[in-house]
Nucleic acid binder design. Structure first.
Lengths: 224, 224
DNA sequence: AATCTCAAGATTGGATCCAATCAACGATTG
DNA sequence: CAATCGTTGATTGGATCCAATCTTGAGATT
């Protein structure tokens, strides 16, 4: 294992082993790529992965194909898979897409949010305050945002937004490392829930847009 | 082959056979799903596909995995792949996403469009007028739009837009069948190029938005 | 010294075989 | 007669083996 990364440890960290080995490998790799444990540019050797996960090369190959379709890997025929690079441009694009899509989802969702949805969102804000592990903050942040968009009634749009938030996780790491969690703008999160509870779409959207814009600016300043 | 679909003919239709069998199968299936030759809900049996394409089941499996990640198939462990359903809701979502993303890409692109880009766009408009095959119209329409967004300088955004346009092809079929090509709004296409040539971003965006809105309304009325 | 050639090793792509799971159907039992 | 439980065939998931391709490095050639 001269890759410089300990794949074997990774295998143990997935709690509930899914029904298929392929999915197991896919999840473990995806999580490790998203939170930066496997750095961009790392070549992924099928044999090494198979040994680390204690499966044959076939489920590994299927997992790699799926991750490629999710733009987390670059695949070249007969050469293999490499963890996709991250870049300031890619990060900026992610914010651009979020800025275009999330307000639409939020606006559609607000009228249909239930008291339960809003409570859950507030719980997630508290969870974020308490969570010590930076790696898990990305997931909590994502679930917070998604809880506000859940009632948008546009499943495809919501799935796409979730996908962007997941890809955003690759950059959130840097954001947190450089700015600290006090800059995660929990104030914005609170304001968003409040506006949503009051069914004030205009106010909610405006907070969300500013939230994304500020994050984009912060990140752009510190990335590279 | 009691599936009711002749996969064997499909195999012959891919001109330049790609380097890997997996990619070959993937392209053929994707094209057939997008233009409706394989209807939604069709179960895709690995063995049948392998026989039709004259390869083993393994490249078929890899192709299916990729198509699943592209949301063209629904995959259930130990049950297999089924062509993803289309629906009025899904179509509406596609327009919603396009409506949010394409104006951003267009606005960013306009200042950097070259004379060549604009000429190419105009050529594609003429091509659409001349193309007799409805199936190929989708590709031409997509290439027209993409030629206008090409200089946006946000590769990730542009890729995402292209993906939406590809998925839109699944519905364009119905659009054309019911409304005929005269309703493809070539006037809008011409107006978009003209506004882009004059670097009039406001006008260009407004035409594009109306273009998408009208298409969405037409489609919503006739689908189902 | 630089470049080209080509052979050996490494790595991926594909084929075949076996195991695990699911669906359908009939037998058994209350 | 309805419901449940095996059993069997069909289908997918996974392992192993072979073929094709790429990479690397030593040696020859200029």
């Amino acid at each position: 294992m001269e890759d410089g990364f300990d794949f074997a440890r990774l295998a143990a960290e997935i709690g509930d082993r899914p029904r298929t080995a392929s999915e197991f490998v896919q999840r473990a790799l995806r999580a490790a790529i998203l939170d930066g444990r496997i750095p961009p540019g790392t070549p992924l050797r099928q044999e090494a992965l198979a040994a680390a996960f204690d499966v044959s090369r076939m489920p590994v190959r299927e997992a790699l194909r799926q991750l490629e379709a999710q733009a987390l890997l670059d695949f070249t025929p007969h050469k293999g898979a490499v963890v996709a690079e991250i870049s300031a441009q890619d990060q900026a694009d992610t914010y651009l897409i979020r800025r275009a899509l999330e307000p639409v989802a939020f606006a559609q969702s607000i009228p249909h949010l239930t008291r339960d949805d809003l409570d859950r969102a507030e719980d997630l804000i508290s969870d974020m305050d308490r969570e010590p592990d930076h790696g898990r903050l990305g997931e909590l942040n994502r679930r917070f945002h998604m809880s506000l968009y859940a009632r948008a009634g546009s499943p495809k749009l919501v799935r796409l937004v979730e996908r962007q938030l997941i890809e955003h996780d690759r950059y959130l790491r840097f954001h947190l490392a450089m700015l600290g969690r006090d800059r995660m703008s929990q104030d914005d999160h609170i304001a968003m829930v409040k506006a949503a509870a009051g069914r004030d779409i205009t106010a909610a959207i405006s907070v969300l847009q500013r939230h994304i814009d500020v994050a984009a600016e912060d990140s752009a300043r510190f990335f590279n």
